[in-house]
Computed example of a mutant assay.
Amino acid sequence: MALYDVNDAGFKEEIGSGLTLVDFWAPWCGPCKMIAPILEELAPEVEGKANIAKLNVDENQATASEYEVMSIPTLILFKDGEPVDKVVGFQPKEQLAALIEKHA
């Protein structure tokens, strides 16, 4: 289940166990478009260690608000449903891999 979409309705269940990196993004966001292929490339490399999920903030404002997402892209790393790390803005693949590794 390498890279998948999540929404307000099932968010807590989707990120409830293990390590999940959630990309809070929107279709109109330039840096979000730049990070998307990086996440697609990273997902199979971290499979078994972490999942990567994408949440469209325009369509899922309740979750974005709950985790105080003010700028996008914001990437929050959840461990067993609890946020353990957060980065804002475009990040290179190496930094995202290191973030996951730090909590794996």
Rank of each mutant, 00 (worst) to 15 (best):
M70E: 12
A98M: 07
P83S: 07
P27A: 13
K86S: 09
A104P: 08
A53V: 11
D5Y: 14
A2P: 15
K93I: 09
V46R: 02
M1K: 15
N60L: 09
V46I: 12
E45H: 07
F90W: 03
A9F: 08
E94A: 11
P31W: 00
A53N: 06
D80C: 09
S17V: 13
K33I: 12
V57A: 02
D23L: 08
L21H: 04
F11K: 04
V84E: 02
P44A: 01
S65E: 12
K86L: 08
S71D: 14
A64P: 05
D8F: 08
E82F: 07
V46D: 03
E40R: 09
E41L: 05
V69C: 00
Q95Y: 06
E59S: 14
T74W: 00
V84A: 02
A97K: 13
A97C: 03
G89D: 05
S71N: 14
I15W: 01
V6K: 04
K33D: 04
D8C: 08
T20V: 15
Q61A: 14
N7D: 15
E59N: 13
A53S: 09
K49T: 13
E66M: 09
V88G: 01
I38F: 01
E101F: 13
A104E: 11
A9Y: 07
L42C: 06
F78D: 00
